[in-house]
Design a protein around this nucleic acid. Structure first.
Length: 798
DNA sequence: GCACCTCTAGCA
DNA sequence: GCTAGAGGTGCC
């Protein structure tokens, strides 16, 4: 039998199947989706078995060298999905498969040198290396040219051997356990005076199950010595048992039961349940305003799928994967839930993933990559906050989780639910066209009203002499909440609002030497840092350009807001949440729960507080600079502004108290800000669609973004122009090719960046054409400095 | 991605 | 004639 293998070499020349013979003894072991070690040229590397056939068209075939898995890490479905994904995103098949397995399983092959003959037969200069070991790492001798030469010769003389050893990054965690020995009856009973040993033995015997050593000693208050003696005498056996790392160890989840659905909720869950009963694939767009009870609809739909003996995948944006959200799923489905997000360590992720693979759980709640959960019988897929950009991966393979979800939904013939209060234009347009089934949920549960929104014109404030970052109205309301003992949330959108350093005399702005971007001031180190390449330098005392010492940092980071807040409202207790205060693991939860317990009056934060926050005492939400991202050169900037404003205002008044929202803006008349006042998504949608139509943007067209970068500007331009010329010749005249132009970020890490864009409606051969471009520059990309990146579904245009 | 191959410059 | 280094290519 022949196994077709994708080898672990990320290059376009190896992005195809290689045939290997399956040794007779492994015929039953080697299956599709398993990882193997195969000889590849003179070395041995890892590979994924993606197909098993009886014959090969290739003349000389080597046998598989080693098997790495017992249970395939990829299901047959995932193997096909990976193939589809690589075609879809123009990436390597290998990268697609790597995406589907946890990082802990990614292996590194280490090159080692083994001593084969007697030490004395080796040349003198390499003998010292093997004095007390039979193998050394290649890396140890790589630097030393003369050693290397002798080693090569010794390998030829068969004194030494080169070996490739596979090292898995992640380890299964084990703990020590003890159990009663099998032959205990045949042992002489313990002497009467061995009281402690007897007690401990009885304790273990009564427990029936193997006991965790650490827990056992703690529970019985015995010393390790007593146990060791028992082991020595043969009464109990000690052994290692694999355990799961539990990031939520000790956390108790309060069990919840299904709530009675409102009439509106019943209306939307109907078609979903129907699709479940039919076992047919349909995509639903659940358009539910904030606080309309979408999650309860999800929970009950999942419950139905579980009753049918099926599994469920729930995707949540990374920053919304808060303990509050996890709580709701664990509370309903208990230990049937696995959670996957970036906050877990590599080992924890590996453990959660293994629970899925071994079918020990049936629900997975996770961020983007959880869409590849290795379930085999999926009954429902849910993408919450479907408009979120975090569902798009910006590295290769540049995929969108929504597309993968629908693809898997078709395969499993199960419903896919896209839920959002502010659907993406693409999805809403598809729903109106009938591609998705639209499920509107327009009322908040218990008929709570949407919060009232006031938009404050900050230009007007300035005219009235208010130079602070808080408008009079916002300050008044903050004071009011403080008096009433209610809570407020202040939201600052950091994008385009970082703290840059400028000279007040000549206007010089400190920029990175390697990137075309201004440096950001970091207070903790009193330094300037580049967000793109990590370059860090000391905060200057004088201006580099004019020598003036009037050099200051500008901009409104959360730290600055906090400072001003304590100045104008000294009595207020403030919790600040941003990248700096939440860097440590678990600090995110700590801060949130402190706020939930009422330990602070004001929660000040960035993007990360826009979601999932649900506390009864929040009655005021303030947005400090609504338009900070409206002017980013991206056709979706208005869409993002509206979505964010709606999202943020949804944090207020979710319970008995009425909510109020203050939005501060320099462009209060812009529709994306103005329409938040009435929470009118439909009108916003119409406005935005007409803008897209005029600008010829999605959803009216599809887009492709090609990014070209190289250390030499002239070369980037040359390649870019070549690509554009080629494209213009290949595509139909309906298709628009824009560019080449310099990217908004024209230089990063000393590489110049150009881009060109394709806008098309119908271009069946486009993928082929783009593949040809990749092929054409393959050589230069492989060996040189050139990078050509193609994004079939661009979300970032930097 | 890496090891091996071929080609060529540099030197005796 | 030999060797070190660069560039090219096949890997099943």
């Amino acid at each position: 039998m022949i196994a077709k293998v994708i080898v672990d070499v990320p290059s376009s020349q190896t992005d195809r199947l290689f045939d290997y013979e399956i040794p007779a003894e492994w015929i039953d072991v080697i299956q599709v989706g398993i990882r193997v070690i195969v000889p590849f040229g003179p070395r041995k590397i890892q590979g994924f078995v993606v197909e098993i056939v009886s014959e090969s068209s290739h003349a000389k075939i080597k046998p598989i060298y080693e098997v790495l898995d017992i249970i395939p890490v990829l299901t047959e479905e995932l193997v096909h999905l990976g193939d589809w994904l690589s075609q879809h995103t123009l990436s390597f098949k290998l990268s697609a498969y790597q995406l589907m397995i946890p990082a802990a399983l990614r292996t590194k092959v280490k090159k080692k040198i083994l001593l084969k003959e007697d030490l004395s037969r080796l040349p003198g200069n390499i003998q010292p290396l093997f004095l007390d070991t039979k193998q050394i790492e290649w890396a140890k001798v790589e630097e030393n040219k003369s050693l290397l030469k002798s080693i090569h010769q010794a390998v030829k003389d068969e004194l030494l051997e080169v070996d490739y050893q596979v090292e898995e990054k992640g380890k299964k965690k084990t703990e020590r356990y003890v159990r009663i020995a099998a032959n205990i009856d045949r042992l002489e009973p313990l002497p009467a005076r061995a009281v402690k040993q007897k007690d401990l033995l009885t304790y273990i015997e009564n427990r029936k199950q193997p006991q965790n050593v650490q827990a056992l000693l703690q529970e019985t208050n015995m010393t390790r010595q007593v146990l060791t003696t028992l082991i020595k005498k043969g009464f109990v056996e000690e052994f290692e048992q694999e355990v799961y790392r539990d990031p939520n160890a000790g956390v108790q989840y309060e069990r919840t039961t299904p709530l009675l659905l409102t009439e509106k909720q019943q209306e939307v869950i109907g078609p979903i349940l129907h699709s479940l009963e039919d076992k047919s694939h349909r995509s639903f767009l659940l358009h539910g305003v904030t606080g309309s009870g979408k999650t309860e609809v999800y929970l009950q739909a999942i419950d139905k799928a579980l009753q049918q003996g099926k599994e469920a995948i729930v995707l949540v944006p990374e920053i919304a994967l808060t303990p509050q959200m996890v709580q709701r799923f664990k509370g309903r489905f208990g230990s049937m839930v696995a959670v996957l997000h970036s906050g877990l360590s590599m080992g924890e992720k590996y453990d959660e993933w293994r629970k899925i693979l071994r079918q020990e759980v049936r629900v997975v709640v996770g961020a983007r990559s959880a869409i590849f959960a290795p379930f085999t019988n999926i009954g429902i897929i849910i993408i919450d906050e479907e408009h979120e950009t975090s569902y798009k991966q910006e590295e290769n393979p540049k995929y969108h989780a929504r597309d993968v979800a629908i693809h898997r939904g078709e395969y499993h013939q199960c419903p896919v639910i896209l839920g959002s209060a502010t659907p993406s234009l693409e999805s809403y347009a598809r729903a109106l066209k009938g591609v998705y089934h639209l499920l509107p949920l327009k009322e908040r549960v218990n008929n709570r009203s949407m919060p009232s929104v006031e938009v404050v014109d900050m230009r007007e404030e300035l005219r009235q002499g208010n130079r602070s970052m808080f408008s009079y109205s916002l300050l008044d309301k903050l004071k009011d909440r403080l008096e009433k003992g209610e809570q407020s949330v202040l939201f600052l959108n950091r994008r385009g609002y970082s703290t840059f350093v400028m000279c007040r005399d000549c206007g010089y702005v400190a920029t990175c030497d390697h990137c075309d971007i201004s440096l950001t001031y970091h207070r903790t180190h009193h330094s300037l840092k580049c967000h793109y390449c990590g370059h860090e330098e000391k905060m200057p005392n004088t201006c580099e350009s004019c020598g003036s010492d009037h050099i200051r940092f500008f901009g409104s980071g959360t730290q600055k807001v906090e400072e001003e807040l304590t100045r104008v409202l000294p009595q207020a207790k403030v919790i600040r949440m941003d990248i700096d205060t939440t860097r440590r693991k678990g600090s995110h939860e700590k801060l949130l729960s402190a706020f939930g317990r009422g330990e602070a009056d004001i929660l000040l934060g960035t993007q990360m507080i826009a979601k999932g926050l649900d506390f009864p005492k929040i009655t005021l939400v303030g947005v400090l600079a609504a338009d900070s991202m409206l002017h980013i050169p991206d056709f979706r900037s208005a869409e993002r502004t509206f979505q964010l404003m709606e999202q943020v205002s949804g944090r207020a008044g979710r319970h008995d108290l009425e909510g109020e929202v203050i939005i501060q803006s320099y462009t209060p008349d812009h529709y994306s800000i103005e329409l938040v006042k009435t929470h009118d998504y439909e009108q916003y949608f119409q406005m935005e669609m007409s803008q897209r139509k005029v600008g010829v943007y999605p959803p009216y067209v599809f887009m492709v973004l090609i990014n070209i970068s190289h250390p030499e500007l002239t070369h980037v331009i040359h390649v870019s122009e070549k690509i554009v010329t080629f494209l213009k010749r290949e595509v139909s005249n309906q298709t628009v090719i824009l560019g080449p132009v310099a990217s908004p970020l024209a230089r990063i890490k000393d590489r110049y960046r150009y881009q060109c864009m394709i806008k098309y409606r119908n271009e069946s051969g486009l993928r082929e054409t783009l593949r040809e471009i990749q092929q054409h520059f393959m050589r230069e990309i492989n060996q040189g400095q050139l990078q050509v990146s193609i994004d079939m579904y661009p979300y970032l245009f930097t």
